[in-house]
Measured scan of single mutants.
Amino acid sequence: MEVRTIKVFTTVDNINLHTQVVDMSMTYGQQFGPTYLDGADVTKIKPHNSHEGKTFYVLPNDDTLRVEAFEYYHTTDPSFLGRYMSALNHTKKWKYPQVNGLTSIKWADNNCYLATALLTLQQIELKFNPPALQDAYYRARAGEAANFCALILAYCNKTVGELGDVRETMSYLFQHANLDSCKRVLNVVCKTCGQQQTTLKGVEAVMYMGTLSYEQFKKGVQIPCTCGKQATKYLVQQESPFVMMSAPPAQYELKHGTFTCASEYTGNYQCGHYKHITSKETLYCIDGALLTKSSEYKGPITDVFYKENSYTTTIK
């Protein structure tokens, strides 16, 4: 009895394709271990004539594949690729409408935090270190965002349907971005203890939790000093293409032309909904596939993004 075979390709990165001759009487799992086709788990399936010449994702289970996976995804987590594939199996079914010149995501599976993050990423200057993220990001900007969303979920250790947080998501993504040249110098002034300067680099240099107003941050924000008295913390120097200011959701007025974009969060910790506000020729609110415009805006804002380049204080 002759062994019926077909020729397929296996890959971990969709760049390096490895030619395989597979036995049609055995499952993919018996031949390769966990195997995925377009995100779908085909591990328990036997090869079919229609699979001839198709590319299958496999887990990096030998040295060659491990090197290829690390170079593309910059992670050695053995569960990463499987999590990416199972997320992709959902995100490829989502709709990605162009809204006001940006790629958004039609609401499904509690994905409003991903839509808000995706919209924000198209408006701030950011370059990702893992080629996987950078490639998928370019495709997302062009309207094909399924891979990018699935990668975000995998890097953030999230599953489809789980509630997510924009600030946490951005923080994970910033860790995989090139923020080497970003720098922030802060000064804390206390009447009792004097003053202390701190220099922050990388992710810490672009994120701040405690106030939404970048102007206020430049002037000074009140913080408790270690001595128990009130101290003032203010920005001395900022070198970065953008800054992200966050605070627990509270009524906040966004003035046209003073910011790049913002995240609105309605609801409580267990259950809520994100919308995205962007400042173009007027203010726009993007909620999944829905767009509304207004000249002014007041609502429960939790993150505001500002364009920056270089700032030095005039406070002496």
Rank of each mutant, 00 (worst) to 15 (best):
M1S: 04
V3Y: 13
V3M: 14
R4G: 12
R4W: 12
I6E: 02
K7F: 08
T10C: 14
T11E: 01
T11F: 06
T11W: 00
V12Y: 03
D13S: 02
L17S: 11
H18C: 10
T19Q: 15
T19L: 13
T19I: 12
T19C: 15
Q20Y: 09
Q20F: 09
V21W: 15
V21S: 10
M24K: 15
M26Q: 14
Y28T: 01
G29A: 08
G29M: 08
G29D: 10
Q30M: 15
Q30N: 07
G33A: 00
P34H: 10
Y36A: 02
Y36V: 02
D38Y: 11
G39F: 07
A40L: 13
D41Y: 03
D41I: 08
V42S: 05
V42F: 12
T43G: 13
T43A: 13
K44S: 12
K46I: 13
P47E: 00
H48Q: 12
H48S: 11
G53W: 10
F56V: 08
Y57F: 15
Y57S: 05
V58S: 05
V58Q: 13
L59S: 07
L59Y: 08
D62K: 11
T64Q: 11
V67D: 15
F70N: 10
H74Y: 03
H74T: 02
D77C: 04
D77W: 00
P78W: 11
P78Y: 07
F80A: 00
L81P: 12
L81W: 08
G82C: 15
R83F: 00
R83P: 01
R83M: 03
R83A: 05
R83D: 01
R83L: 05
Y84L: 03
M85W: 01
M85T: 03
S86M: 14
A87V: 06
H90Y: 10
K92Q: 11
K92Y: 05
K93W: 04
W94Q: 00
K95C: 11
Y96E: 01
P97G: 14
P97R: 06
Q98L: 09
V99L: 11
V99W: 09
V99K: 01
V99Q: 06
G101H: 06
L102Q: 08
L102T: 06
T103E: 01
T103R: 07
S104P: 04
W107R: 11
D109M: 11
Y113L: 00
L114A: 04
L118D: 02
L119E: 08
L121W: 01
L121G: 03
E125G: 06
L126M: 14
L126S: 03
K127W: 05
K127G: 08
K127Q: 08
N129P: 02
P130D: 01
P130M: 04
P130S: 10
P130A: 12
P130Y: 02
P131I: 01
P131A: 02
A132R: 03
D135N: 13
D135A: 10
Y137Q: 07
R139A: 14
A140F: 07
R141L: 13
R141C: 13
A142L: 13
A142G: 10
A142S: 13
A142T: 12
A146Y: 03
A146P: 03
A150C: 03
Y155V: 01
N157M: 07
K158A: 04
T159S: 12
L163Y: 15
G164D: 00
G164Y: 03
D165N: 15
D165R: 09
T169L: 12
M170E: 03
S171T: 14
Y172E: 12
Q175S: 13
H176K: 11
H176S: 02
H176T: 03
H176P: 01
H176G: 01
D180K: 14
S181R: 12
S181N: 11
S181T: 14
C182M: 04
K183F: 09
R184G: 09
V189P: 02
C190D: 00
C190I: 03
K191S: 12
K191W: 07
K191D: 13
T192M: 09
T192I: 12
C193N: 01
C193P: 02
C193D: 04
G194A: 06
Q196P: 03
L200Q: 14
K201Q: 15
K201A: 08
G202R: 03
V206E: 04
M207C: 14
M207S: 09
M209D: 15
G210N: 05
T211C: 11
T211R: 04
L212Y: 08
L212K: 07
L212G: 08
L212F: 00
L212E: 06
S213V: 14
E215N: 09
K218C: 06
K219E: 07
G220N: 04
V221N: 04
I223W: 10
I223K: 05
P224Q: 11
P224W: 10
T226R: 14
C227G: 01
C227H: 02
G228V: 03
G228I: 01
K229W: 03
K229I: 07
A231N: 03
A231C: 06
T232E: 08
K233D: 04
Y234H: 08
Y234I: 10
V236H: 07
Q237V: 09
Q238S: 04
S240P: 06
P241T: 08
V243K: 06
A250W: 03
Q251D: 04
Q251K: 12
Y252N: 07
Y252E: 10
L254C: 04
F259A: 05
F259E: 06
T260H: 10
A262Y: 00
E264Y: 05
E264P: 03
T266G: 10
G267W: 12
G267T: 14
N268H: 10
N268T: 14
Q270I: 10
C271I: 14
C271A: 14
G272T: 04
K275E: 07
I277V: 09
I277G: 06
T278L: 10
S279R: 00
S279H: 04
K280G: 14
L283W: 03
L283D: 07
C285L: 08
D287W: 00
G288C: 00
A289G: 10
T292Y: 10
S295Q: 14
E296H: 13
K298G: 07
G299Q: 06
G299P: 06
I301A: 06
I301D: 02
I301G: 06
T302I: 05
T302F: 05
D303K: 04
D303C: 11
V304Q: 07
V304L: 05
V304P: 07
Y306A: 05
E308Q: 12
S310G: 09
S310R: 12
S310I: 15
S310Y: 08
Y311E: 05
Y311P: 06
Y311F: 13
Y311I: 07
T312K: 13
I315L: 14
I315Q: 10
K316M: 12
